[in-house]
Design a protein around this nucleic acid. Structure first.
Lengths: 350, 350
DNA sequence: TTGTACGCGTTATCAC
DNA sequence: GTGATAACGCGTACAA
């Protein structure tokens, strides 16, 4: 009857060492191991050393799934972003992930492709993991998503936009302000017939906010606005199409064009080169995003640089604060610190 | 004594509806709910309808943490990639994530920045989640990482390289072959004094494989190899530095230069423009990666296009096959299908 | 087809 | 400072 310990246990388990194995080897209670791993200071030096030794010997890796179940919240944070491979959001993902993992949190990532339905699916899937927090892009969600975000009892952050009235933590900038900023920059340069080219991707609602800012600035200046919606799906093509419609017409040409993003502007710029149109002399171009290509174009592209890395880092910090992992900044200033500025990058094209 | 059901239960739980709540409302056993959610066909239509109704009413979201604990393997897959925001890997991440989530799996992501230590930390953290599979980049890991990958009883995929001898599933291409491919392309164009510029980032060992391929091809052709290691940390600067050292010298100039990546090549190309060096007439340039900027440069950059999206998608499919989620391709051909080709993108610079 | 009993590995609670 | 016990919510095994 010596089977008690030596018996090949017919567990369902994964075979990995558990906290009990560690506890047995270190001759302590398993709860003490748990404590030691979290707050070593609460465990006496002697036991701590024995535990550390056992952990090493067994190659023990804590089972975060079990821990998450027991404590009802896991150390993962879900993030839904329109796209991963685009030129804009990758920096946000990276700085967000790095800031999180520096504090022991992991990143669950999914992309929505500007589709509210895909966003909803991702949020639902993430909620199943009892994430410590959730990050979404922008304030435009399906009704079901709104409900889930509200009812989840965890910190929720909306990035890449800033609306003071909304309840989720906002980390980003006002796209409306940016649209005004763009229009005013061109107005200051002396341009008057200024057009705005929207994105041909329908779900990019933030770009519509920038357009509205442009409209406001034009109205203030007492000028007629002029918006164009390309039909070509690919951004370079859409930019070319817009350029042809706005800058290559015989009469009433645009003096300057604002594009919903740098790829559209790049398409227009290349179309201008091909047509021999001097830029910015005959038509100035301004983008949004400051993509990697923008400084390399000829002429280099004047654009707006969004604080992509800052958004990721600050979003992570606000989450860690809300979770009590890091000390919070001076609370009153917090909201203002979340509202970031975009810089006009003045180059040759405008 | 009517407290039985109405009593405010002092559970530790998250407050979310559980499978038991659904079962109670639908008046079925909780296991039936579980079954219905996985294989609705095994549950009779009537009960199924009641369950569906209850799920909707309670906004029930299955707790994946609990499910993962019970079944000892969760529906997450961990991926460690050198960097998220770089121009190369984002497409792999995106296609990988999309293929996974189409089958109900989630992506846990971390970046290593070409550091084996950071990779090790990420793998260790991921293992705590009992992931269904793990994906790493390349075959170069710390000893501890190797051990963990071997002992984890789950599918492991190494991407962005291809070494037939290694045990983990390989999905990628032979960097050695690519180096040869680059050198041979330039040799075919008639260039003889061909140099190779390494990455100034020390951990990029795949680039060294390409260099070795270049060395082999040069040896085969009976030509003297010439490698240069820039010291400037920023890629554009490093490319300029290399161009000045190899192409702007008074005698014995390089006729063609292969760069470890397109950013280095772009830096060189811009330096050439500035110095008034005709490219490719006086010095041809070839990159690797086919970044977004490369077709837009003047002259446009000849380069190698790695199958970034294919790597992500195929890696995901191999994992799903190994997990039995999707039917596998014809097994014998499988290994060969994992070895992908890189295309030479012949443009103006070489 | 449906249900019961139990275990998954950890942490919260409470006692010592 | 340390430990015993009971959840956490679901899936597996087996019985009905």
């Amino acid at each position: 009857m010596t089977e008690e310990k030596a018996a090949p246990r017919k567990r369902r388990g994964s075979g990995r060492a558990t906290i009990h194995d560690v506890a047995r080897l270190a001759q302590v209670g398993s709860i003490t191991v748990s404590r030691y791993l979290k707050q070593p200071s609460q465990v006496s030096g002697e036991l701590g050393a024995r535990i550390a030794q056992a952990v090493k010997e067994l190659h023990y890796v804590p089972n975060l799934v079990a821990g998450g179940l027991a404590s009802t919240h896991s150390r993962v944070v879900g993030m839904v972003i329109p796209n991963i491979s685009g030129p804009i959001f990758a920096n946000t993902i990276e700085s967000f992930s790095d800031t999180l993992s520096a504090h022991g949190y992991q990143l669950l990532l999914a992309s929505s492709y500007f589709s509210q339905e895909q966003e909803e699916n991702a949020v639902r899937a993430f909620l199943g993991w009892s994430p410590a927090a959730l990050v979404v892009t922008g304030p435009f969600h399906s009704k079901a998503t709104e409900t889930m975000l509200t009812q989840a009892q965890i910190p929720v952050v909306e990035t890449w936009d800033y609306r003071p009235r909304r309840k989720p933590i906002q980390v980003g900038f006002s796209n409306l302000d940016v649209g005004q900023q763009q229009a005013r920059y061109l107005l200051d340069q002396g341009y008057r017939r200024i057009a705005f080219v929207q994105n041909s991707v329908p779900g990019d609602l933030s770009a519509l906010d920038r357009r509205d800012g442009y409209l406001e600035a034009m109205a203030e200046a007492g000028l007629q606005p002029w918006t164009f919606v390309p039909t070509e799906p690919a951004p370079f093509d859409a930019g070319r199409q817009a350029f042809e419609a706005l800058a290559l017409r015989k009469r009433g040409r645009a003096e300057a064009i604002i594009f919903a993003n740098d790829n559209l502007a790049a398409g227009a710029l290349l179309a201008g080169q091909r047509a021999g149109v001097p830029i910015p002399q005959q038509c100035a171009l301004m983008g949004f995003g400051d993509y990697a290509i923008s400084p390399l174009l000829l002429p280099s592209l004047t654009t707006i640089r969004p604080p992509a890395r800052a958004i990721g880092e600050i979003a992570a910090l606000r989450i860690l604060e809300a979770l009590g992992v890091v000390a919070s900044d001076t609370p009153p200033a917090k909201a203002r610190l979340n509202r970031l500025a975009c810089d006009v990058i003045a180059r040759e094209s405008a």
